[in-house]
Design a binder for these strands. Sequence first.
DNA 1: CAATGAATATGATCATAATCATATGAAGAA
DNA 2: TTCTTCATATGATTATGATCATATTCATTG
Lengths: 210, 210
Amino acid sequence: MKKVNDTLDWPALIAAQPAAGLIPEPLREMAKRVDAEASETLFRVGDPVLHVYLVISGEARLTRLGRNGREVILQRSRGGFIAEASLDSRTYHCDAIAAEPTTLLLFPTAAFRVALGAEPSFCKAWQSQLAREVRKLRAQCERLSLPSAADRINHYIESEGTDGAVTINQSRKSWAAELGLSHEALYRALRRMQDEGVLEVDGNRLISKP
Amino acid sequence: MKKVNDTLDWPALIAAQPAAGLIPEPLREMAKRVDAEASETLFRVGDPVLHVYLVISGEARLTRLGRNGREVILQRSRGGFIAEASLDSRTYHCDAIAAEPTTLLLFPTAAFRVALGAEPSFCKAWQSQLAREVRKLRAQCERLSLPSAADRINHYIESEGTDGAVTINQSRKSWAAELGLSHEALYRALRRMQDEGVLEVDGNRLISKP
DNA sequence: CAATGAATATGATCATAATCATATGAAGAA
DNA sequence: TTCTTCATATGATTATGATCATATTCATTG
């Protein structure tokens, strides 16, 4: 887990990961940028909670080892804060690893807590961010509960887009993962929906046809 | 949407829905209990955000009407706060209906915002609650991304339980819905896993066998 | 008590997504 | 440039969950 000592380019960081924009000035100065290699451990069950982690690029995973020896994935993150609830805990209740070469920002937990208490604007912004995340995740759960690929695609367009259209800002493969589908099933469903005339695909723009 | 004017029994409310315990005293006195009938509307797209809604019993749904005329479900709630992100909005961006006879608590939005700003303990508790919800929902999304029923059940045991065991505090049917399975598929998977000796079922207690 | 409805449970059939295989195109490295 | 790699894309086969049907048990209510 290599610490990078360059001074941080915050506009670039925020462009890469908008959630970084929440961080107020004093906390920004305490941020450490870290580059983790694939399968490198970020923290383990029982470790003290020393930092708040923000994924800038790559992929971080929160996992737990099950009784049957199989690893259970609690979260895959390709950007944004992870393990926000650890702010309420002294130690971690899961492991975190980098699933591929990953860049993160680390903020000292103690200072993070102080800033939340001392800066009302940061506190409000943090709350709003959590509420937005809750809304997004609930919609995602409902979407994943739909059995058919076409229904999930339509649900995505209506819940994440506006007026029956949405722009996909990720690769088809990672979008397939977000939809809980194999990428093959996604390609096929898109093809079928276009053939049936219920969907228009223009690059990364998807338009639902009535 | 019948307003019930009885004085509220807070210990009973908190027992029925623990999230009610977050509410501080002054807000409790402004709470209105409401009984909604099946398919009754709670609010609609464009309505001003006048209240914060807490589902005590029954089921509330947040929905949006898609371009193709089909209703998209953004959230089904059988207990807890709904549409928390509406605290950051002047109007609603979805509809809310009671899917069955449902009891709710309503808090005036303005007073709720004031309380969040004025009472640090409430503000922290609200934040913690949102963070816990985020953690729970992320795990649920990962679970729903697993293709097989047995994998989802194992994931549930490991992520929601401790030491390879969990107690289900809901009916099998509603648990099946949470797992994104038909109830038939859940019954069958439980039977198969018991036959294979990888799961022990004792009433509502599930134990994963190595 | 009987009756009604809901949850629990299992069987049979069918639709569909996962998987494996294969091919093409685009981007980046040597 | 060529080579490599990865995303995109489609076909064939298989596994599995959804659906419909049917009992049974349980709880609630008249």
